[in-house]
Design a protein around this nucleic acid. Structure first.
Lengths: 218, 218
DNA sequence: GCTAATTGATGATATAAGTCATTTCAAAGC
DNA sequence: GCTTTGAAATGACTTATATCATCAATTAGC
């Protein structure tokens, strides 16, 4: 069984505690793992597949704030504050997740400084990602935002090029803060300019340097 | 001397450790406390005045991601990752800040679980704020975004209404992701509709419910 | 006290991006 | 097999927002 690298900091006994109470659950594509606003009881760790993390407002507009894949656990900030979820998680592939009660998790954080320290690092990395995403979404216009999304998918999410993605155009739009139609149009200009190639669910970045230039120029 | 409430979790001896190494520095309005990209050596705690936290991109476009005031300490996510600052901090009033080396701070986090736990709560709250700010900036149009900014200033930053703010129209624009001209125009419509009143550096919210409706409707 | 520099305010215009309508295409159901 | 459904693609049109230019009002410098 795969496990997130922060668990390497746990002693045998501590790991046993986690294993004793953890629950492994399988989700089908499209199934909701937790919903924004609902009470949070568990930490979620992905062992197979992928989750889409998103926030939605009153008008059903969505923004995708990230993904969780093996072997990420999802940092649930509500667990340390109001015990509510502040974003939703939905399976975008066949996914297996491992749930650990937040009380058990918090106990380990208190008892094992190495574990806590590794956790702080993960949380910090996510904070940095949030800041960078916010900066991209607010300061750049559509081509720059889409370039950021494609580069992020290739470099950070799928770690490959080309990559096969189950994400729809709507998802790409929700990641880059634009409408589905605009996302399609931008992708077409990228295709026409031979920056990318698409074939079904596959996307290949043909011209990294140019995409990065578009990202920089906004 | 004021201190952040997370320090109430420290024992006498631990507080003494902090006091032994901490440095108190005064900044004039407009002075830079730290700069995005620079190495981070210290945790910063504000004892007087206010800091503006912002991120800038290659094109000198700014986005204000928050403020730090007494008695906040600034969560510096780079401290736990690449030891670099990922945003800049600038004094927007006469400000006194207290610097504590990150090694001392991290030692306390490891040794005192209550302190670490309080810290995690603060970090989580900031993460939630980031998500909410991102959602506002991406999903709402100008009136909704400006409403969010004004409500946030009144409720979370200055904790008063009316409030006197040293922020320029450009700052309000940088908070709400629009140009200075647009910010001025939106404020004018709010004034014309008697939602707010402005007089010099003072802003008063006259119609909370309506502003909140504008915020909700985007 | 006067000049220079900055900030706020406003109008005219340009452009980025959203909305709406339509079509194509592929997958799912009967 | 055909029909239905949903996603992708595309064009026409509208609207939100940025840009540019100008001017007033305030603040800073000499």
């Amino acid at each position: 069984m795969q496990r997130s690298d922060i668990f390497t900091n746990l002693a045998e006994g501590e790991l046993a505690q986690v294993n004793a109470c953890r629950v492994s659950i399988r989700y089908h594509t499209g199934e909701v793992v937790f919903k924004q606003g609902s009470p949070c009881h568990d930490f979620v760790c992905i062992t197979k597949g992928m989750l889409k993390l998103y926030r939605e407002d009153e008008n059903d507009k969505r923004i995708i704030i990230g993904f969780a894949k093996p072997v990420d656990y999802i940092f649930v900030p509500g667990a340390f504050t109001d015990k509510r979820h502040h974003f939703s998680a939905i399976a975008c592939e066949e996914t297996t997740a491992c749930l650990v009660g937040i009380d058990v998790f918090e106990k380990l954080l208190r008892e094992n400084p190495d574990f806590a320290s590794a956790f702080m690092t993960k949380v910090s990395e996510q904070s940095i990602r949030f800041i960078e995403q916010m900066s991209s979404l607010v300061q750049k216009q559509m081509p720059g935002r889409m370039a950021d999304v494609l580069l992020d998918l290739s470099k950070a999410v799928y770690n490959s090029n080309p990559f096969v993605s189950s994400l729809s155009r709507q998802d790409l739009a929700d990641m880059s803060g634009m409408t589905k139609e605009s996302a399609i149009r931008i992708l077409k200009t990228f295709r026409d300019d031979e920056l990318i190639r698409t074939e079904g669910d596959m996307i290949e970045i043909l011209n990294y340097p140019m995409l990065e230039r578009i990202s920089r120029n906004g």
